[in-house]
């Protein structure tokens, strides 16, 4: 099976939140409770163990090129989701093997194996995966593995009225994304950029299977500009540890020899 993923084009998102509801309905996730945030129309605020698609609404006093407003202002929408990284921190941190890479290249959590240790929670550079308080286990977007198995596209992509969420083979998505970016640049939307499409763009995750087209810097969307999977640092960390151990041994030998000379 070739790798499948999402291309989320925020330039056509209308902020209808249909994806967020479709996701909850298909996966039968509970509501997070009613909380009025006062932060634009965003009242769920972030991805959660029970919110696998989250539509962020961001208001900035910043003029973006290609837009006309009375005052410097931008209102951005982003339908955020698990990125299904090529180098997935959660998957590498999981001690039980609950997190696996599927035949569609997505990162899938098997709830019957998960023991709720929470190692994956801190290993995700995007803060996607989280534990549910009521059952203790970690939960996240499955890229609708069950739907993909029977040849359906994921619920969010299916429901999105503007095709802001596009599902398909990752190689096809890349071509589509490049074309869209070129088109936007030609129309004078100079800040438009792709986020995490290839390993070159994002070496810390080796590229995302669910990547984005953004209209501003990643920071404007509360996305990390240079995410790094913690296990990427493992080699260096072990090397340093080795070096430190060698140093300790050397110091001990030196101390013994210095003592013996007296």
């Amino acid at each position: 099976m070739e790798p499948h993923g999402f291309f989320t084009d925020t330039s056509v998102c209308i902020g209808c939140k249909a994806c967020e509801v479709a996701c909850k309905q298909w996966n039968q996730l509970p509501a997070d409770g009613a909380y009025f945030s006062g932060r634009s129309y965003d009242n769920t605020l972030h991805l959660e163990s029970t919110t696998w698609r989250h539509v962020a609404f961001l208001e900035h006093s910043r003029q973006l090129s290609g837009q006309t407003t009375a005052r410097p202002f931008s209102w951005l929408f982003l339908s955020d989701v698990c990125k299904h990284c090529n180098r997935a921190g959660c998957l590498e941190a999981c001690p039980t093997g609950a997190l696996v890479r599927t035949e569609f290249a997505s990162v899938y959590l098997q709830p019957d194996v998960c023991n709720g240790c929470g190692y994956c929670v801190v290993a995700c550079p995007f803060g996607v995966i989280n534990r549910r308080e009521d059952d203790g286990r970690a939960w996240k977007c499955t890229l609708c593995y069950d739907r993909q198995k029977v040849g359906l596209e994921p619920a969010c992509a299916k429901t999105c009225p503007t095709d802001s969420i596009f599902f398909g083979p990752v190689e096809e998505l890349k071509v589509r994304a490049q074309a869209r970016l070129l088109e936007l640049h030609r129309k004078g939307v100079h800040e438009a950029r792709l986020y995490g499409m290839t390993e070159l763009d994002q070496p810390g995750t080796e590229g995302l299977n669910a990547f984005f087209l953004l209209l501003d810097r990643p920071e404007a969307y509360n996305l990390p500009p240079e995410p790094r999977v913690p296990t990427k640092e493992a080699g260096r960390a072990w090397g340093m540890m080795g070096l430190a151990a060698l140093g300790m041994v050397a110091a001990a030998i030196a101390a013994v020899r210095a003592g013996g000379e007296e």
Partner: peptide, 21 residues
């Protein structure tokens, strides 16, 4: 977008209420 007309139908749904509570 989160609610329908005066909300008489949509305000019964927790999935919509969490979006506009």
């Amino acid at each position: 977008t989160e609610h329908h007309t005066a909300g008489g139908m949509s305000r019964w749904l927790p999935w919509l209420n969490e979006l506009q509570p």
